[in-house]
């Protein structure tokens, strides 16, 4: 079983998963495709609600994704309180999946996520994440995402 199949299996096992999409979704291109294309495919195939941070909401909505504009810090902040309350998910998520953030930004916020698993779909491995894709060039990163999407 490939790491991607295993990862997808883990995500699918969780009842309440929230996808967070960062500003790079709108700014990064991989092989001529916006990163938001990849994010949208993941969201649609897994039927995930999306907290679209930065300016990533519009390109996702245009692809039919259930995206709502949120601030990254707001979502991380909520994880430390017993009361969740945010209408983006009916209950507190069991897992947060991040895509479209620079490595340094995620390194800074991941340690603050409390009480849930974290998955980082970026091109740098993150020691504070429950799972992250491995270090990769952008070319390899594109292939990793394609493999992941192929496993969905």
């Amino acid at each position: 079983m490939s790491v991607f199949t295993e990862l997808v299996g883990n995500i699918k096992k969780r009842k309440n998963v929230l996808l967070l999409t960062g500003y790079l979704c709108d700014e990064m291109e991989l092989g001529g495709r916006k990163l938001s294309d990849f994010a949208a495919q993941i969201a649609l195939k897994l039927d995930l609600p999306v907290a679209a941070t930065g300016s990533s909401a519009v390109p996702l909505k245009e692809k039919g994704v259930r995206a709502t504009r949120k601030a990254l810090a707001e979502m991380v902040n909520l994880t430390r309180f017993p009361y969740w309350g945010d209408p983006i998910t009916a209950q507190r998520p069991e897992m947060m999946v991040f895509i479209g953030y620079p490595a340094r930004m995620l390194k800074s916020v991941l340690p603050a996520v409390k009480g849930m698993e974290t998955v980082v779909l970026g091109n740098m491995s993150m020691k504070d994440a429950t799972f992250s894709l491995p270090d990769a060039s952008l070319n390899q990163y594109q292939k990793n995402l394609e493999s992941l999407i192929g496993s969905l």
Binding site: L24, E27, M28, Y101, P102, A103, R104, M105, N123, M124, D135, A136, S137, L138, N139, Q140, Y141
Partner: peptide, 17 residues
Amino acid sequence: DDCDRCSNVCPNGLLIG
């Protein structure tokens, strides 16, 4: 094109490579 380490260490997340 098999590297891009510069982007990952850039504090502004610039896609340098």
